[in-house]
């Protein structure tokens, strides 16, 4: 008999990490119309960044370091590559996925394909309503909501955030109002990369850290964003929880090897019935 409370707790934890995985992808897609297929690689860079820095420094330093590394990698990716290709959708598509493969192969060279486990940000566990919950899962849950809240405030309240929103609505209009579009784009990629790094640390601790983890992470991000609706922060979060709970239920009742299968099938259903996702584009409309 699987405990309802266990499912609720585990589901909420994993969902909050999924929201982090998808939010950066959603941001770039929504604001720039660019599908960043190296998003999974940025998440992976976060996880491995944490692993490497953790070798010489305490966990919290590694955590901040991983976010910084992934954010910078994302910025470099934009300034060094995507800036020049983004007018051509197909080439951007291919170039970003090839970048992901290069990262995968470089990490394979250094770390081999064997999965590794990350040392948790905060050790220990506490009992919650009869279930033992690891502390870092709670930390992940709380930090996820804090970060999403900060992102919301950033987009709505700060000048830079509002110019990101404005650029997503109309690049021409934003330019006419004195918005430096290149600067805005760079900022968007930096923020999206930082979120990817954040997500990578927790995804790497909750599941496994290996050079092929980007495929599933990218798949998850793509699925969540598509189900939630492109460019909608609210939709992304709701879809993340939908997928997170679906996976938890799958693992509890069907078996761990089916993880992800139903999410993929749900996606196919939604994509065919409602291609624009559950929530439309709030950035546009």
């Amino acid at each position: 008999m699987v405990d309802v409370l266990t499912i609720l707790v585990t589901g909420a934890m994993i969902s909050s990490v999924y929201a982090l995985i998808a939010i950066g992808f959603s941001l770039i897609y929504g604001v720039r119309g660019v599908i960043n297929l190296s998003h999974g690689a940025l998440i992976m860079i976060g996880a491995f960044g944490y692993l490497i820095i953790n070798g010489v420094a305490p966990e919290w330093v590694a955590f901040i370091g991983a976010i910084a590394v992934a954010g910078l990698a994302s910025l470099v990716l934009y300034l060094g590559l995507v800036r020049y290709t983004e007018h051509d959708v197909v080439i951007t598509f291919l170039a970003t996925v090839v970048v992901a493969l290069i990262v995968q192969q470089l990490l394979t060279l250094q770390f081999s394909l064997a999965p590794r486990s990350l040392s948790p940000l905060v050790p220990g566990g506490i009992p919650v309503a009869g279930t033992r919950v690891r502390v870092y899962q709670i930390v992940a849950f709380v930090l996820s909501w804090v970060a999403l809240g900060l992102l919301y405030l950033f987009v709505r309240r700060t000048k830079l955030g509002r110019s990101i929103l404005a650029t997503s609505m109309s690049e021409k209009g934003a330019k006419l109002n004195g918005v430096n579009v290149l600067y805005v784009n760079a900022a968007t990629w930096l923020v999206a990369g930082a979120f990817a790094g954040f997500a990578g640390v927790f995804l790497g601790s909750l599941q496994s850290t290996s050079p092929t983890m980007w495929v599933n992470a990218l798949g998850l991000a793509f699925i969540i964003v598509t189900i939630g609706g492109v460019g909608s922060i609210k939709g992304t979060i709701i879809a993340a929880y939908l997928i997170g709970f679906l996976e938890t239920l799958t693992v509890s009742f069907v078996g761990a090897e089916w993880r992800g299968m139903f999410a993929l099938l749900l996606l196919i259903g939604i994509i065919i019935a409602r291609p624009q996702g559950l929530f439309g584009r709030e950035f546009i409309e």
């Binding site: 599908i35 495929v215 793509f222 598509t226 090897e257 196919i268 994509i271 065919i272 291609p275």
Partner: peptide, 25 residues
């Protein structure tokens, strides 16, 4: 026939993931 651009790509991408999972399941 219904989906355009990235959604079609996503669906085909997903089909590979499903098939790969199925091989292991």
């Amino acid at each position: 026939l219904r989906l355009s651009g990235p959604y079609f790509s996503l669906l085909t991408f997903v089909s590979v993931l499903i098939a790969t999972k199925a091989v292991y399941i």
